[in-house]
Design a protein around this nucleic acid. Structure first.
Lengths: 195, 195
DNA sequence: GTCTATAAGCAGATAGAC
DNA sequence: GTCTATCTGCTTATAGAC
């Protein structure tokens, strides 16, 4: 009874870590069971198949992303718009620095999604929401006069895609001045149009 | 005799396509052999192991990238600098549009590299060279007076990382105005500094 | 060079006892 | 809930004939 939830949690957390370390295909249920300290059939008491375990973790990850993806516009004014935008990126970079597993397994799911429709739609919505956040932010910036009105959509996509790839580059262990890059991007985008 | 090179080529090309479609782990040597129209042991005549086949294709891909990664600065002047930079990105976008397999298998190798040192160093050098190209371009732009001198490195990394992720986004089937995003990035980066 | 036959091992998954 | 024992199928890889 009390143990049931515990074992379930152990399986999920161990699988998450091992999938992240080795990938889905190179992590067998036997390996997970051994690491958890149970037998392989015990996993089948909680999950119908390996695929269902992978799907369960996918769902958990998606929920977490969807949840953390809405930051409020409350504190933002014309005076601190640029600084706030910069610090949003800084916060993302910081999260990545303390989060070795998440990005790795997420890339695993992205590759899965490129071949399996089941994961594609959900990730599509996440990516869309992700870019939309930057769009809403810049649109708000236009309203309060902190951003010039041209090409808001492209600017938003530019920022969203850049911060996304900063996460990927960090994953590969590439050492760059990511904060400097992000700051440069924000200030460049917010610069007045010449014309 | 004449057949030897042909079979070798068939194996490599078929494997490339199938690895791209299904991933390494979900493409067995039996599947490749069947698709080529030979028996499985025939593959072992050309490659010692599956891993060696994967490595061979990795080497081919790296060589191709390294080769196509140097565009000359000859045609570039102060008058056409921005336009040339924009068209460099456009050309990359166009390549991606006609190249369904390359990006997919390349991402497969990136994920491999995140777990296997053997692939890591080579990809590291490619990524570095990639970003360096944009750095050299911008530095040249500074010399001829087409770019203001501040933060060249961050600007170069920004452009390099953006065009890289444009490729990734295209892979996922995400429909965006990638040319507009790239153009916005280039013009933003080349805008005069306010101060 | 390419084949048939086969070895050895591990994968996902199930039966059934406790 | 968790176990031991087991099934089926597929994997990489090899032996040896032609």
């Amino acid at each position: 009874m009390g143990n049931k939830e515990n074992t379930h949690k152990n399986i999920v957390e161990t699988a998450f870590k091992m999938f992240s370390d080795n990938g889905f295909d190179k992590t067998s249920l036997s390996m997970i069971a051994k690491e958890v300290g149970i037998s392989k059939p015990a996993i089948y008491y909680y999950f119908e198949s390996k695929e269902q375990l992978i799907d369960y973790i996918f769902d958990e990850i998606c929920k977490e992303i969807e949840h953390q993806n809405d930051f409020s516009l409350d504190r933002i004014s014309i005076d601190n718009f640029e600084a706030e935008l910069i610090s949003i990126g800084y916060r993302m970079i910081e999260e990545h620095e303390h989060d070795e597993y998440f990005n790795k397994i997420f890339n695993e799911y992205i590759l899965l999604a490129s071949r399996n429709e089941k994961y594609r739609n959900r990730l599509y919505e996440i990516q869309k929401g992700y870019l939309t956040t930057y769009y809403d932010l810049l649109k708000f910036g236009v309203e309060i006069g902190a951003v010039s009105a041209g090409n808001i959509e492209s600017k938003a996509n530019l920022l969203g895609m850049l911060i996304d790839n900063i996460g990927n580059f960090m994953l590969t262990g590439f050492q760059l001045d990511y904060r400097g890059i992000w700051k440069e991007a924000v200030t460049s985008v917010l610069k007045e149009d010449k014309s």
